[in-house]
Each structure stands twice: as structure tokens, then as C-alpha cells.
């Protein structure tokens, strides 16, 4: 449904990125201070998990590159479609909880494994064992079991 009263697009031509930090040594406030030091006018929003940064693509890329140096294995960056505070998405305008963080919440639990992987792969060459079919099929319904269910249904 169209709405002629919708606000014009905010921050056209910019990119917004989430910066998550999951580090035992650096907290989001420290990261924010570092970001302000080197931001050169990029919009920064502090959050409980890290930052959201909005600006021209090249400037944001440079800022992210510098921020990663703070704790390379424990900082994770992701694109965001909406800029912070966009009235079409911000819960300050819409009310209620904002959908979309469930995925981040789920992945936050495995970030420690990813960090460990990043540290290991940075310090040495890791031989990769490919994920075998049996591993990939874990948790799936076996074909034989499915056939058995179908046959029982037909009786």
C-alpha cells in the first residue's frame, strides 16, 4: 500500500554498518571512543553490542579498517539496510520491540568459536576437513524413516 506522506529517503548515497564487539579486552565504549577519534564526521551510534556507523562508502570502509585493528578476532562487521533512527524502522516511532535482532542474538552465541577460528587461522595454516555428507545430514529425517512413515500411513 502506498503512503504519500512518507518521509523522503534519509542519508542517500551512504552505507550503514553494524560493528559488533565480543571481546574480553575491549568493551563497546572503548570502541566508540576510538571510532570518534578517527571518524572524520561519520555518524556513529553507540549500542550495547558495539556501534552503527553511517557515511560515505569509502569513509566507512576506512573507519572499519581502523576499528578492526583494535581487536581483529573479536570485531564483526555487517551491512545494514536502514540508517539508524529511520522513522520507517526505528522502534521509537513504531513502538514495541524491533524485529530483526533474533539472528544477531543467535549468532552472538557462536562468535566465541569464530574468534577462536580467526586466531588459529591467523597464526598457522589449518588443514580443512570438508564437511562430509553424514555430518551435513545430521538432524535430518533419514530417507528410510520417511518411507516407513509413508507406508504406515497407507495401512
Amino acid at each position: 500500500m502506498t503512503n504519500k506522506m512518507a518521509p523522503p529517503p534519509l542519508y542517500s548515497g551512504t552505507v550503514t554498518k553494524y560493528v559488533f564487539i565480543d571481546s574480553p579486552n575491549v568493551n563497546p565504549q572503548t570502541l566508540a571512543i576510538r571510532a570518534y577519534e578517527i571518524s572524520k564526521g561519520i555518524m556513529i551510534k553507540e549500542t550495547c553490542f558495539g556501534l552503527q556507523v553511517t557515511g560515505k562508502p569509502d569513509e566507512v570502509k576506512e573507519l572499519i579498517r581502523e576499528l578492526r585493528k583494535v581487536d581483529p578476532a573479536h570485531i564483526f562487521v555487517k551491512d545494514r539496510g536502514f540508517p539508524p533512527g529511520d522513522p520507517r524502522r526505528c522502534r521509537a516511532n513504531l513502538g514495541g520491540a524491533r524485529p530483526g535482532y533474533y539472528g544477531h542474538e543467535f549468532e552472538s552465541r557462536i562468535l566465541r568459536y569464530i574468534s577462536r577460528g580467526l586466531e588459529e587461522t591467523a597464526s598457522r595454516t589449518v588443514t580443512v576437513n570438508k564437511f562430509e555428507k553424514t555430518k551435513m545430514d545430521e538432524g535430518k529425517l533419514p530417507l528410510e524413516k520417511l518411507l516407513e512413515i509413508i507406508e504406515n500411513e497407507e495401512d
Binding site: I110, R112, Y113, I114, S115, R116, G117, L118, E120, T121, V126, T127, V128, N129, K130, F131, K135, M136, E138
Partner: peptide, 18 residues
């Protein structure tokens, strides 16, 4: 690349390395 989410440190290393 077909992979699964890691559930341990060893799987995390394999995940990142792959």
C-alpha cells in the same frame, strides 16, 4: 561452499578455515 554452524572450538576453527 556448504557448511554448518560450529558448536565447539574445533568446529569453529574448521568453519573459519574452510
Amino acid at each position: 561452499l556448504d557448511i554448518k554452524y560450529p558448536s565447539s572450538e574445533e568446529e569453529g576453527i574448521a568453519f573459519v578455515a574452510s
